[in-house]
């Protein structure tokens, strides 16, 4: 049984169609990459999957249950964690408190039970030295790391990552890939939107290509990157 299954999901903002008849599924523990040009509807797709936007039609099943009409809070409690493309920290809380609130609510634990969990995630994501700093004092790179750390603190079965490798140096990118790989190896399913293709292909087993709100290809990374449609649309190459 897939952990996530979308069937004929559509959404438009006025006349602008941002998702049209989208259908795909992700198996438990699988890592799926999503690529597509700017404005293809990638982040919108995440907002539909996590319930930030209601779908116009179609169904979304998560972990064997129909969650199409559930609010984001419910989907998080059933094991869906996400990061935002533009980091959305709780600015007046410290980095540790940002994780604490995620762990206490998202994983439905007592506050006193999740100290070690949060500390371990801070160590793993390289934020431990900033644990007691207010999130407003973080650099963009650190904010992106905290997005990942906070999503991990909800102890998700499925992790939605929205462009967290953009703007990183080579070394930082390698660290990030290593972290995501470790999370993935623990059995967490991952859907990762990313423009940094070498980072993406180092982790994911399949890639989905999105353009104008439609799925135009899904398959293993080699096949997808070699396909002429993808090259033309995504990489802007003449074939």
């Amino acid at each position: 049984m897939p952990i996530l299954e979308l069937t004929a999901v559509s959404k438009s903002f006025g006349a602008l169609v941002v998702a049209e008849d989208i259908g795909f599924s992700v198996e438990p523990g699988e890592a799926l990459g999503i690529i597509g040009p700017n404005g293809a509807g990638k982040s919108t797709l995440f907002n539909l999957i996590n319930g930030n936007y209601p779908v116009a039609s179609g169904t979304i099943c998560f972990d064997g249950r129909d969650v199409t009409h559930q609010p984001p809070m419910q989907r998080c409690l059933s094991g869906m964690g996400r990061t935002f493309q533009i980091p959305q920290p709780f600015e007046r809380l410290t980095v540790f408190e940002n994780l604490l609130v995620a762990a206490a609510f998202g994983a439905q634990e007592k506050e006193s039970q999740v100290t070690d969990l949060c500390a371990d995630i801070l160590v793993e994501t390289g934020l431990i030295a900033k644990a007691n700093r207010p999130a407003s004092a973080l650099t963009l790179l650190e904010r992106k790391r905290m997005e990942l750390a906070r999503a991990l603190a909800t102890q998700p079965k499925l992790l939605l990552l929205d462009e967290i490798a953009g703007g990183l140096t080579e070394g930082e990118c390698r660290q990030l890939v290593a972290t995501i790989k470790r999370v993935h190896q623990r059995g967490v399913a991952v859907i990762w939107i990313e423009h940094v293709l070498h980072a993406l292909t180092a982790v994911v087993e399949r890639i989905l290509v999105l353009n104008f709100g439609r799925v135009i290809g899904i398959g293993d990374p080699e096949t997808i990157m070699a396909s002429s449609v993808v090259r033309e649309i995504y990489l802007g190459m003449e074939v």
Binding site: C76, E91, E111
Partner: peptide
């Protein structure tokens, strides 16, 4: 100082993100 207070502080700072991590705003 309670867990609910922490959730409330999260809602204050960013309601969307708070909902996404399971806070019933």
């Amino acid at each position: 100082r309670s867990k609910q207070g922490l959730g409330l502080a999260a809602v204050r700072d960013n309601e969307n993100a708070a909902r996404a991590i399971g806070v019933d705003a």
